[in-house]
Nucleic acid binder design. Structure first.
Length: 928
DNA sequence: CACGTCACG
DNA sequence: GACGTACGTGACGTGT
């Protein structure tokens, strides 16, 4: 078919795909020869997803366009063009030709031309397609190609869920239509490509000028008419540079191409060619997956290509999983487990909440591909049947009999029990009287190796490391109101699903186990991840007593106050509105009442956050009242109301669940409910802590590290003045203020101290003048002055920050003092993402080291307080909360404080003391 | 289900 | 007024 009306051309920006694939994946190598192939693998996955996404679509022609060589006609114009680009990573270079091979293997046209950038080829093809009366979609988010949009040409951002970028989006980004984009770029320049532009002029100003004068040439000719003197002079002085910039950003859309649009017609992949390539790359699982999809047998060559030392993984086959119905069948599995010495275990239950969940069945796996499920309490009737048959389904072992057989194995020292998120299963087993030990946990292994690269849920891990998409649970359980619990799932379906989870877990373990050592995280995993599982399980199961009446009384009081505020607000606004709707609040403030300074966010709504409303409070009464209402609403809905629903009916206590892998830095996170964000900063909120109480005859004890992150900063950045202040027990913020502002300590004012405190925290967060200015509400220049003075006074801090960022750029990760690795995959990206990654990289070793310290304390705590009538209940990042018999409180404080203050020993010897403050009380409010 | 907002360290 | 910016989390209500 000749390209013409009705045709649709897709042009894929190959380089963008490659770099995304490279940064998205951990460094994989081909087993047989160690060739790096991570980017190729990701590239193939993206192509495959792209192809699948187009099945049934209207695309008639497609090509992947690559850059060729690093020297283009633009370098002849300007030798500094793209001169600030970092060199291509060593392990990416050999993969470049392979991505071309991959494109051809998928039977997609693959084009590159010496001396030209991919962008020029894309421009030429897009124009050809448009002129022929067809449509063109450029798959890229590169702003350099936005000049091409319009007249049937759009862009598509594959990284943002295939968002279409059309003329309107271009106008939003550049403030001018696509035909004037190059004029704006010529003025604004481009840091990423090292296009100079006009100094001091950015996109905003450029768009303003272009819109006023029509186009760049007119603007430059009439530059003398510009009223602002500085701007006028800039344009006159830099005319040549601006004109050069325009030539640099203008894409060549009239190239002579050695092929035509017709050569790009969509072709189906040829299975033999594609699978041959994939198996050469030794993408075993992808070969299997794609051969399944194409409906052909995986080629024998795939087996040949697999290195001899890599045991061939059997394919996943749900039909092979066994339904264990009686003791004899189970015993066969137990015998296998003892012969092997380890087993992957998974439980199925009625709830994700371990304190409410009832055990429904157990699955086991000893060899990849061979797994079983032991259903125990499946019901035969459906849940929604009013007269539902609550009888047990057929073919299930007796519950107690099964547990009696499993218990000795699960508790046997010589049998390693492998789980994915073992804390969950261990708690379920604990509630039926089984102490599972010893354990390994694939989720924690992944976290130790790959924190920051991806999340660590089974679906992600299976997809990433086994190339297998697990059977989804949704279709089995349903969703919304008609959702049922797992004990209502027909046993045949349950066997496939549940046994597969154990199978996946075992396979992941086989992949991860040898990697731990190679990635040098064995000791992190074995000393700071795995031992935390039983510690947290105990804390969570113990829970903390919460008084429902206190909460309920507070809820009522909040409701009354809110109703009063609502009346006042309706009065002020001159009508009813939903105070809880930021959109409506914004309309009232900025449209209806006409207050100044409304800023709209990306979805066109006014921002009405606390900072905005606080600034407006001087103008009008309404914003302040909205803030008061919001505070009450927050306290009521998130705390006094919701906490009541979390009080366990059996224990009368609240049982949170800690996630070990929730935060990339090593911190824990807390859910259902989150007990790490109970209010304390305002008096009203703080009262909620009065509902957290000790059991009769006991008290709550809270111990928290004093300034732990600043102490760690003083140590790692090696700042003598800070270290000495901590040794002397001085007020660290006052000391900082004194050093910076040359104010003697005894003349320190609270305000100066407050500013120094903000700077101290800012440093930990990767300070910027902008951020500090906003925080302190001072002019940006003043904030920058503070920062400059701080670095002048404490030069070690700057060195630490620079070194940390340099380390991150080289290794794509940072480390805590205890060896925890935190990946920063965005650190070498261009664009705003790099700024975030940089600050995160500065913060992570500090926050992470503090997290490691308290983890170590928690792991040692059990033994240290075993002789006391005390239980550890909660962790809040730098604080531990205990419940202890009244008369043993002081003993507990002594023992726990000793553990906490010495938790870094002997691995890290801090130059500063770690200091722990303690409090005792009948409630958490008192104890803090 | 995304977003804005706000609670904590 | 080149850009967009303090670090790390989780839960709630609104509005699509």
């Amino acid at each position: 078919m000749a390209f013409g009306k009705g045709c649709h051309l897709h042009l894929i920006d190959g380089s963008a795909f490659i770099f995304r694939a490279y940064h998205a994946l951990p460094p994989l190598t081909r087993k047989s020869d160690g060739l790096p192939v991570g980017a190729v693998s990701g590239f193939c996955n993206m192509l495959q997803r792209y192809v699948e996404g187009n099945v049934g679509g209207d695309v008639t022609h497609v090509a992947v366009i690559f850059d060729k060589g690093s020297h283009t006609f633009r370098n002849d114009m300007y030798d500094q063009y793209k001169a600030n680009r970092e060199a291509m990573p060593e392990d990416l270079r050999p993969q470049m030709p392979l991505t071309r091979d991959a494109t051809k293997a998928f039977n997609i046209a693959c084009e590159e031309i010496e001396g030209f950038e991919a962008d020029d080829i894309i421009a030429t093809l897009a124009v050809q397609a448009r002129d022929a009366g067809g449509r063109c979609t450029i798959i890229s988010s590169d702003k350099d190609m936005m000049q091409l949009v319009g007249g049937g040409v759009v862009m598509m951002d594959a990284m943002k869920g295939n968002k279409i970028i059309d003329v309107e989006d271009v106008e939003e980004k550049f403030g001018v239509g696509p035909n004037r984009v190059i004029d704006v770029q010529a003025l604004a320049g481009d840091t990423a490509d090292n296009v100079p532009g006009a100094p001091g002029i950015g996109i905003k100003t450029a768009a303003l000028l272009i819109n006023e004068y029509g186009d760049l040439e007119t603007l430059l000719d009439r530059a003398g008419e510009i009223t602002q003197p500085k701007r006028r002079q800039t344009l006159i002085d830099h005319r040549a540079q601006i004109e050069l910039s325009k030539r640099l950003v203008t894409l060549d859309d009239k190239m002579d191409l050695p092929f035509t649009l017709d050569d790009l017609e969509v072709r189906d992949p040829e299975p033999d060619v594609l699978l041959e390539f994939l198996s050469q790359m030794e993408f075993r699982t992808m070969t299997k997956r794609i051969s399944d999809k194409l409906g052909v047998a995986a080629p024998a060559v795939a087996d040949v290509a697999v290195a001899a030392d890599a045991p061939e993984q059997p394919a996943f086959d749900a039909e092979k999983y066994e339904w264990v119905k009686d003791a004899a069948a189970l015993q066969v599995w137990i015998d296998q487990i003892y012969a092997r010495g380890y087993v992957a275990v998974d439980t199925e239950t009625t709830s994700l909440n371990e304190m409410r969940a009832e055990l429904v069945g157990v699955s086991l796996c000893v060899t990849a591909g061979e797994a079983c499920y032991i259903p125990l309490t499946h019901k035969s009737g459906a849940a929604d049947d009013l007269f539902g048959d609550d009888a047990l389904a057929e073919g299930q072992m007796d519950f107690e009999e099964c547990l009696a057989i499993l218990k000795p194995m699960l508790e046997d020292d010589s049998i390693l029990k492998i789980g994915q998120n073992m804390k969950y299963d261990a708690k379920i087993f604990k509630r039926v009287g089984i102490d599972v030990d010893p354990i390994d946990d694939t989720m924690l292994m992944s976290y130790a190796m790959n924190a920051g690269l991806h999340r660590h849920g089974m679906d992600v891990l299976s997809e990433q490391y086994l190339g297998h998409t697990p059977i989804p649970i949704k279709p089995l359980l349903g969703a919304g109101k008609s959702a049922k619990t797992f004990n209502r799932v027909p046993v045949e379906d349950a066997v496939r699903y549940a046994a597969e989870d154990a199978d996946i877990t075992l396979r992941l373990w086989e992949v991860f186990k040898p990697q731990l050592h190679r990635k040098q995280v064995t000791s992190v995993y074995e000393t700071m991840e795995r031992p935390l599982v039983p510690v947290l399980a105990k804390m969570e199961m113990h829970g903390i007593k919460v008084d429902r009446d206190t909460l309920s009384r507070m809820s009522n009081a909040f409701a009354q106050k809110m109703a009063g505020l609502e009346d006042e607000l309706y009065e002020l606004a001159g009508g009813k509105f939903n105070v809880g709707s930021p959109a409506q609040v914004g309309e009232i403030l900025f449209d209806q009442m006409g207050l100044e300074g409304g800023k709209k966010g990306k979805n066109g709504k006014y921002a009405t956050g606390a900072d905005v409303l606080e600034d407006l409070a001087t103008e009008h009464d309404l914003p302040g009242r909205v803030l008061d209402w919001r505070q009450l609403s927050k306290l009521k809905s998130t705390y006094t109301d919701a906490l009541q629903t979390h009080i366990n009916a059996e224990t009368g206590r609240v049982h949170t669940s800690y996630s070990i892998t929730g935060a990339n830095t090593g911190r824990l996170s807390s859910t259902d409910p989150n007990l790490q964000n109970i209010p304390i900063r305002t008096d009203e909120g703080r009262k909620i802590r009065e509902a957290f109480i000790a059991d009769e005859g006991k008290v709550l004890v809270a111990l928290d590290y004093s300034q732990i992150e600043l102490r760690i900063l003083a140590h790692v950045a090696n700042i003598d003045a800070l270290k000495q202040a901590f040794r002397d027990g001085h007020d660290i913020h006052a000391m900082t203020a004194s050093e910076m502002f040359n104010v003697p300590l005894d003349e320190m004012t609270p305000d100066v101290r407050r500013q120094a405190k903000a700077i101290n925290f800012g440093v930990i967060y990767g300070i910027s003048g902008f951020g500090l200015a906003r925080n302190l509400r001072i002019p940006r220049a003043e904030a920058q002055g503070f920062i400059d003075r701080y670095f002048e006074r404490f030069p070690g801090i700057r060195t630490y920050m620079d070194d940390t960022v340099a380390f991150a750029k080289e290794h794509n990760r940072v480390e805590t003092l205890f060896g925890r690795k935190i990946h920063t995959p965005e650190i070498n990206a261009k664009g705003p993402g790099a700024g975030f990654a940089k600050r995160a990289a500065i913060n992570a070793p500090i926050q992470g080291t503090a997290a490691d310290v308290i983890r170590r304390a928690m792991i040692r705590m059990d033994d240290a307080i075993a002789h006391l009538p005390a239980k550890m209940l909660l962790q809040v990042h730098d604080e531990l909360v205990f419940e202890v018999d009244k008369d043993a409180a002081e003993d507990l404080i002594a023992a726990a404080r000793d553990v906490m203050e010495n938790a870094a020993n002997p691995v890290v010897k801090f130059d500063v003391p770690l200091v722990v403050d303690a409090g005792i009380g009948a409630t958490w409010a008192e104890a803090h």
